[in-house]
Design a protein around this nucleic acid. Structure first.
Length: 418
DNA sequence: TCTGGGGTCCTAGGACCC
DNA sequence: TCTGGGGTCCTAGGACCC
């Protein structure tokens, strides 16, 4: 049996923990570059603001209703997420599924006390971290997700729903759209509607073979999971990452090779830092860049790959490969709006294969990177960096409405007045 | 006229998730 | 003027092997 614990409007809730004036008023959090809406309070949802709405289209609404608006403050949300997980680990073995969702293993919990456990979890997480949550319980992950959906939508659940009883499932499933099921996106929902499958009940009653024909194995698995047959296991120690990416939209369009090289070098620097934090090396590096697909600018989309002779997490190597690719891919005459660096085919540094023919001194590189990381860790990110990443950085993103890093920066600690 | 069978690996593209 | 970022999994098709 699984429980899915999910933070309500997670980013908004994080902002509210340290700014109680945000309670009861509409609040939204924006994506990077203040581009579009990625989190909404209940009050903002009630105003009809859809998920993913471009911010510039909402400015009037924001003004009219006094909607409080924040740039996303990722360090704050990540730290709050960790605090929630710490509390959850006190209840049961826990798979962290995303920044605001975790699956718990309820094996051994007597059926009669599951609901009470759900309420205990909610109460403790709320009291210890300030984050409101909902808890969904079910015999498969897909049913636990569905139960969580029900817990959120139905006030009488008081935030906890257990869908382990098939009779209860038969009762709720006809009232929920198939598109709400975990793994059914807009395209699949449309395909399903084409064969008359509209509700979760329809989907659960579908012949597994037909589901496979329409939606490949993933579709067949969903049908089984909805009927209580477990196809997706709990992953208590998630497998190592296969890839890591650093991609950003620019604060203003990039039109020169020099600016593109700088931007890509700075993303590559960050990618190398991430690799070292995770103890991984990249076998290959991909760089891409493209123009804005929305605003009618001439389209240009470019991508290129570089393979390393042996896995690397060395900033200098990665930056040099990335800038070479950027130079090669860049085309003058276009207004590029976004670029990215992706480190691929990651290998744990400890058991990375060595190249027989390269002379690189791995020990020296490792010591240099250790020194760089130590400096940037102690004195603040970007205390030292490669000159390739530029100084003025006109392409850097806009984040005009950033809240303080209440929990991760000494200068930003909240003040208490007596 | 008629041109095999069985396998692996790689890549690109699509769909989905939060 | 202005539309996010970071991942995963699956499939199809091509190249290549013996």
């Amino acid at each position: 049996m699984f429980a899915l614990v999910d933070g309500n409007n997670f980013y908004v809730s994080c902002e509210r923990v340290f700014n109680p004036k945000l309670e009861g008023v509409p609040v939204i959090v924006l994506s990077n570059n203040d581009g579009c809406v990625v989190a909404r309070s209940a009050e903002a949802k009630a105003l009809g603001i859809p998920m993913g709405a471009p911010y510039f289209q909402l400015k009037q609404l924001v003004k009219d209703h006094g909607i409080r608006t924040f740039s996303s403050n990722y360090p704050l949300y990540a730290d709050m997420s960790q605090r929630v997980v710490t509390v959850l680990n006190g209840f049961a073995p826990c798979e962290v599924y995303s920044i605001d969702e975790s699956f718990l293993d309820l094996q051994g919990v007597p059926p009669a006390s599951r609901i009470q456990l759900g309420h205990d979890i909610r109460q403790k997480v709320r009291r210890w971290t300030g984050i409101p949550t909902c808890v969904g319980i079910g015999p498969t992950k897909t049913l636990a997700k569905l139960a969580n959906h029900v817990a959120k939508k139905r006030p009488e659940c008081a935030g906890v729903c257990d869908l382990s009883d098939p009779a209860l499932r038969r009762h709720v499933m006809p009232a929920i759209d198939a598109g709400e099921v975990w793994g059914i996106g807009p395209k699949s929902a449309k395909k399903l509607a084409g064969v008359g499958v509209r509700t979760v009940a329809d989907l659960a009653g579908m012949a597994p073979r037909l589901a496979r024909q329409l939606l490949t194995v993933t579709g067949e698995r969903i049908v089984h999971e909805l009927n209580g047959t477990r196809c997706i296991q709990l992953d208590l120690s998630p497998p190592p990452k296969q890839a890591t990416a650093v991609t950003r939209s620019f604060g203003q369009p990039v039109t020169t090779v020099a600016a593109m090289e700088e931007a890509v070098a700075s993303y590559a620097t960050r990618a190398a830092e991430k690799l070292r934090q995770e103890g991984m090396g990249a076998t290959a590096l991909q760089v891409f860049m493209h123009t804005n697909p929305f605003n009618g600018d001439p389209r240009c989309s470019r991508a290129g790959l570089h393979s390393f002779p042996e896995p690397s997490s060395d900033t200098l190597e990665i930056v040099s490969a990335a800038t070479r690719l950027a130079r090669r891919l860049f085309r003058p005459g276009y207004r590029f709006s976004k670029a990215g660096v992706m480190a691929l085919d990651l290998v744990a540094t400890a058991d990375a294969p060595r190249d027989l023919f390269t002379q690189a001194d791995r020990g020296k590189s490792a010591r240099l990177m250790e020194a760089v990381d130590a400096l940037n860790d102690r004195m603040g990110r970007n205390t030292i960096w490669t000159a390739a990443a530029g100084i003025n950085r006109p392409w850097q993103q806009q984040r005009r409405r950033l809240s303080p890093n209440y929990t991760t920066k000494v200068e930003d600690l909240p003040m208490v007045r007596l």
